[in-house]
């Protein structure tokens, strides 16, 4: 990393650390949970997007069903906590490991069967749907009723009275995600993933165990995504099958990476920022522009337009645009 890039990263991190102090906590300007929550969502979606990006962007294993890992993490920690009395902090690592395990299992099954490209994408979508249907049907998840986590806002209980702390948690996750992506750009594992993404046959010829590396990356990606699942459950204290395994989340993860630039370190973060800011602005349009009563569809239309433009003109996402400018 160049000195200048390092300086930029440090500055960005500093701003991110100071941000809540401007709006929340010991308020300097004005206390705004809204500003904190939007920032939380941006960082949180960036982290989930990063987990997708590790497999989809760096290793070229495009998944349409990444939510399967998110939901696994969310349900494992929530069930351990609510039904078995575990402390959520202790349940968290188990949830992360479960996400990794599900990633490895899906990897073994689909890569053993030789599924590549769009076939792999479809099988992940199918896995997520199966998980959703199972979660809807078994008693452990209380089916479609969902699980309520009892509110008990103490830090040792993984619940925080001040949303600032969830913001910081998301920030830590996001930085870990960025660090993993950065490591991929300079490690042997990362080089092998790039080789696999570019050309599996050539990768194989050069001594890479393509199957093993793909299973590994899906396990890593699944573990990361599951970590996010637990955080989500602890923040919103409620979980049901369509939240945990709904296709929208898979799409969001894929979208933030593609818009920002799949296979780049900062792609998911940039994509998440753009997507959420657009979402917030279009939501407010409902109040500003007369005649628009429900701005929700408007946000979707704008998302769609952005995606079309990105896919058509910027295959490397916004990061690619910045790079081309230079």
């Amino acid at each position: 990393m160049s000195r200048r890039a390092m300086l930029w990263c440090a500055a960005g991190l500093l701003v991110a650390i100071l941000y809540p102090l401007l709006f929340g906590g010991p308020s300097l300007i004005a206390r705004s949970n809204y500003a904190i929550n939007v920032a939380f969502l941006i960082l949180f979606a960036a982290f989930l997007g990063q987990s997708w990006n590790i497999a989809g962007g760096y290793a070229g294993q495009t998944s349409f069903g990444h939510v399967v890992f998110f939901g696994t993490g969310a349900y494992v920690s929530t069930i351990l906590h609510v039904s078995h009395g575990w402390n959520p902090w202790l349940a968290w690592p188990v949830a992360i490991a479960s996400g990794g395990l599900v990633g490895a299992i899906i990897g073994v099954l689909s890569f053993r069967a030789g599924l590549r490209g769009s076939y792999f994408a479809l099988i992940t979508l199918a896995f997520a749907e199966v998980f959703r249907i199972v979660a809807n049907s078994i008693p452990q998840t209380r089916g479609g009723l969902g699980i309520l986590i009892k509110a008990d806002q103490r830090p040792e209980n993984f619940q925080f009275r001040d949303p600032m702390w969830f913001y910081y948690l998301a920030l830590v996750l996001c930085v870990i995600g960025l660090a993993i992506a950065w490591w991929l750009t300079r490690s042997r594992f990362g080089a092998r993933l790039a080789a696999i993404r570019e050309n599996e046959d050539a990768a194989m010829a050069l001594g890479i165990d393509v199957f093993r590396e793909k299973v590994r990356v899906l396990a890593l990606s699944g573990a990361m995504c599951a970590a996010g699942g637990t955080v989500y459950a602890q923040k919103y204290l409620y979980l049901d099958p369509s939240i945990a395994f709904g296709v929208e989340k898979s799409v969001e993860m894929l979208l933030v990476s593609m818009i920002g630039g799949a296979g780049t370190i900062f792609g998911p973060l940039i994509g998440s920022g753009v997507l959420h800011l657009v979402g917030e602005i279009t939501r407010d349009l409902g109040n500003v522009v007369p005649g628009i009563k429900n701005a929700q569809p408007l946000a979707l239309i704008v998302y769609g337009l952005i995606l079309v433009v990105i896919v058509a003109y910027l295959p490397d996402g916004l990061t690619g645009l910045l790079r081309r400018r230079r």
Binding site: A194, A195, E198, N199, D201, A202, A203, A205
Partner: peptide, 9 residues
């Protein structure tokens, strides 16, 4: 090596 070159483009 491959007859049809297979670079990581």
């Amino acid at each position: 090596t491959f007859q049809i070159t297979q670079p990581f483009a």
